[in-house]
């Protein structure tokens, strides 16, 4: 076939391609992990935006005014700022992980970075869960000690241990349910990414004989 020979001739002549460098190849090998870590970084930012926008709708000031303990405001403010500071530190760490993973050229270092990222995310999730538990307990504690309506209710209950035990049980259950919901949320959002990252890690380990 004449055309096929013509094609072959042209095929052999046309061999100039933009050459890929060694660094490019290293980058290609590690790109999967870096895209996952990028998503962890993006999602953590989206998450802080979500919580901030929710907290705008729930104003603690009014509640504190109602129970006539505005001096607690300062405490809440400090708590909020502290929380934001910690979360910002985490976001910075996520960003740092992303940068180091996307620029790493050796597999050994990449594996180390993947483990570090996993640890960071796990710390972040535990911190958030701890914060949820802490603030819920604080909320209940304050309601019990400062809210006049609740205080009179407790006085009534003091005469009846059965109801007292029941109420405390319900509160504990409530905290547990909320914690469970948050845990599920984090498991869903970060769990999937972490599992993929870990799969990459195992793949790298297989290569790393």
């Amino acid at each position: 076939m004449k055309e096929l020979d013509l094609l072959k001739k042209d095929w052999k002549k046309n061999n100039t391609f933009e050459q890929v460098s060694e660094v490019d190849i290293y980058k290609m090998l590690h790109s999967k992990s870096s895209s996952i870590v990028k998503w962890i970084f993006i999602i953590s930012i989206l998450e802080i935006l979500l919580w901030t926008s929710i907290s705008v709708f729930f104003n603690t000031d009014d509640y504190l005014k109602k129970i006539k303990h505005e001096e607690l405001n300062l405490f809440f403010e400090i708590l909020t700022y502290f929380n934001y500071a910690v979360i910002l530190v985490f976001i910075y760490l996520f960003y740092k992980n992303y940068v180091s993973i996307s620029t790493t050229v050796s597999t050994k270092q990449l594996m180390k970075d993947i483990l570090k990222t996993r640890k960071t995310v796990q710390c972040y999730v535990w911190y958030n869960l701890g914060m949820v538990a802490f603030s819920m307990m604080m909320g209940f504690f304050m309601a019990f000690t400062y809210n006049p309506e609740v205080v009179t209710l407790i006085d009534k209950m003091n005469n009846n241990t059965k109801i007292m035990v029941l109420t405390i049980g319900i509160f504990i259950l409530l905290i547990a349910t909320f914690m469970g919901l948050f845990w599920l949320f984090y498991r869903l959002v970060y769990g999937i990414l972490l599992r993929r990252l870990y799969a990459n890690y195992k793949e790298l380990k297989k290569i790393d004989l």
């Binding site: 061999n15 391609f17 890929v20 190849i25 050796s106 597999t107 050994k108 290569i207 004989l209």
Partner: peptide
């Protein structure tokens, strides 16, 4: 060890990259 493996892979891929380009 792993770095050696990776290095040799990257080297060989670089020299043979025209196969993939084609």
């Amino acid at each position: 060890m792993s770095n050696d493996l990776e290095q040799s892979f990257v080297q060989q891929l670089k020299t043979n990259q025209n196969i993939i380009h084609k």
